[in-house]
Amino acid sequence: MENYDPQSAGLFAALFTVFLIPGLVIWLISIIGMWKVYEKAGKPGWASIIPIYNVIVMLEIIGKPVWWLLLLLVPCVNIIFGIWIINLLSKSFGQSEGFTVGLLLLPMIFYPVLGFGNYRYVGPAGAGFAGYKPYDPGLDYKDPFNPTPPPPQV
Rank of each mutant, 00 (worst) to 15 (best):
43 K>I: 02
150 P>T: 06
20 L>G: 07
3 N>R: 08
113 V>M: 14
89 L>M: 12
107 P>H: 03
46 W>E: 06
89 L>W: 02
29 I>V: 15
153 Q>W: 14
102 G>M: 05
41 A>Q: 01
60 E>F: 06
130 A>C: 01
139 L>C: 05
122 V>L: 09
92 S>L: 04
147 P>E: 09
117 G>C: 08
67 W>D: 08
154 V>Y: 14
67 W>Y: 15
154 V>H: 10
29 I>Y: 10
118 N>I: 05
62 I>N: 02
17 T>E: 04
105 L>F: 13
58 M>R: 08
34 M>Q: 14
72 L>S: 07
48 S>Q: 04
52 I>C: 09
69 L>P: 07
113 V>S: 08
111 Y>Q: 06
139 L>T: 02
8 S>V: 15
59 L>G: 10
107 P>I: 03
87 N>C: 05
147 P>S: 08
107 P>G: 05
118 N>S: 14
69 L>K: 09
62 I>S: 06
24 L>N: 11
79 I>Y: 14
112 P>R: 03
45 G>V: 07
7 Q>D: 14
2 E>Y: 11
4 Y>C: 11
105 L>D: 02
132 Y>E: 04
64 K>N: 11
119 Y>Q: 00
137 P>C: 05
146 N>E: 11
33 G>C: 08
137 P>R: 03
112 P>N: 06
58 M>I: 06
111 Y>E: 04
28 L>C: 14
101 V>P: 03
128 G>F: 01
43 K>E: 12
100 T>D: 01
57 V>D: 05
56 I>P: 02
129 F>D: 11
114 L>K: 03
99 F>L: 04
128 G>N: 04
11 L>Y: 13
65 P>L: 12
102 G>F: 03
133 K>F: 06
9 A>Q: 13
7 Q>Y: 15
144 P>E: 07
121 Y>L: 06
98 G>M: 07
101 V>N: 04
145 F>D: 11
149 P>H: 05
52 I>E: 03
75 P>C: 07
58 M>K: 09
95 Q>H: 00
28 L>H: 08
143 D>W: 10
65 P>C: 07
60 E>S: 15
125 A>I: 03
16 F>P: 02
42 G>A: 07
101 V>R: 01
27 W>R: 09
4 Y>R: 13
102 G>A: 06
97 E>W: 06
64 K>E: 15
12 F>I: 15
61 I>T: 03
56 I>A: 13
45 G>A: 07
6 P>Q: 09
90 S>E: 02
127 A>W: 01
146 N>A: 13
16 F>W: 14
71 L>E: 11
126 G>N: 00
81 F>A: 10
127 A>P: 00
154 V>T: 10
4 Y>H: 14
79 I>W: 15
49 I>F: 12
134 P>F: 11
124 P>N: 09
26 I>C: 12
153 Q>H: 10
102 G>R: 04
124 P>L: 08
30 S>P: 01
151 P>C: 02
8 S>I: 13
125 A>K: 04
70 L>D: 04
139 L>Q: 12
72 L>H: 10
85 I>L: 12
62 I>E: 01
151 P>L: 11
1 M>T: 13
93 F>P: 00
134 P>V: 07
